[in-house]
Design a binder for these strands. Structure first.
Lengths: 154, 154
DNA sequence: TGAAATTCCGATTATTTTAATCGGATTTTA
DNA sequence: TAAAATCCGATTAAAATAATCGGAATTTCA
């Protein structure tokens, strides 16, 4: 962290998954999604590819291709989304990792307590699902978004 | 985030506060702490100054000066430590912040759900205290640390 | 069958953030 | 008054994040 801030990559992924969750059974291309959601195309397309590789999205090649949510929003945990996009990262480097990685290891007394905190964070991101993202979406913003879809798709 | 990782600044601060919590009623200079805890002096001294400014540490000038924990570990929340070291930072830029900061604001549907997640994170870092850090410290590492203290202070 | 639209893949560049360092002023002790 | 310390601002170095570039493979459809 600095404190706790999602990277743009994650923020974009969450927004996209939310959109796809609200519009299931339909394929959207990276280009369309980038225009609808106002996200840089080159960047978003890499994120989409990763989500597809992790089977969170279905993807199709070709002119009619694109992406589609492949899982039930209720079953898609934040922790899965995060692991699809990044190597697992913990509050401190040595949690779950090689202790030799830090030269302070032998005298560092925060490892075990940090392990405890990490568990709580893991619990939090495992108990939050895409469904939560869908349920709490703000209504007026949903309307704005739907208008943008019409504008982009014509 | 990338995912959730404390900055070195925070990691150093936690380790230092833990050490000072285990050795109350005594002043340690930035130089001593940097040697005992194996943390770059220049960097640590800035961190200590911030903690002192936030009244988490007592500080004294001069040759016999140094730092000392000024609060009860049970009363010192992680959230206080984090705010002492950084501007408040949230899971996404717009939470609690100016919406105009993000050009996607009008169509971004994750704001409200992110607000919910932020609350849970805030709750977590408010319910974790320095005492937790002290309680869960690993015993064998404490011994290593105590040896290091003798080695440094003679 | 071939042009267009797409996903996919690797590499590079630019930007921002984090980490570390430098120089020096102020305060206290002895 | 010299030494040891906190304090303060600025700069530099390193690392991580964000964005871009170039092109290969796949599918659609005229």
């Amino acid at each position: 962290m600095t404190m706790v801030r999602f990277s743009k990559k994650i923020e974009y992924a969450l927004g996209t998954l939310q959109f796809l969750g609200m519009n299931p059974n339909e394929f959207y291309s990276a280009r369309e999604l980038s225009e609808i959601l106002n996200i840089p195309y080159e960047f978003l397309s890499k994120t989409l590819a990763k989500l597809a590789k992790s089977k969170i999205l279905n993807s199709n090649f070709g002119t009619k291709g694109g992406y589609q949510l492949s899982v039930n929003p209720k079953e898609l945990k934040f922790s899965q989304i995060l692991s699809a996009l990044d190597e697992p990262i913990n509050v401190v480097e040595c949690v779950y990792g090689d202790e030799d990685i830090c030269e302070r290891s032998s005298i560092c007394m925060i490892k075990t307590p940090m392990f405890q905190l990490q568990s709580k964070i893991n619990e939090l991101i495992s108990s939050t699902t895409l469904e939560d993202l869908l349920n709490f979406a703000d209504k007026s913003t949903i309307q704005n978004s739907e208008q943008k879809v019409k504008q982009v798709l014509g």
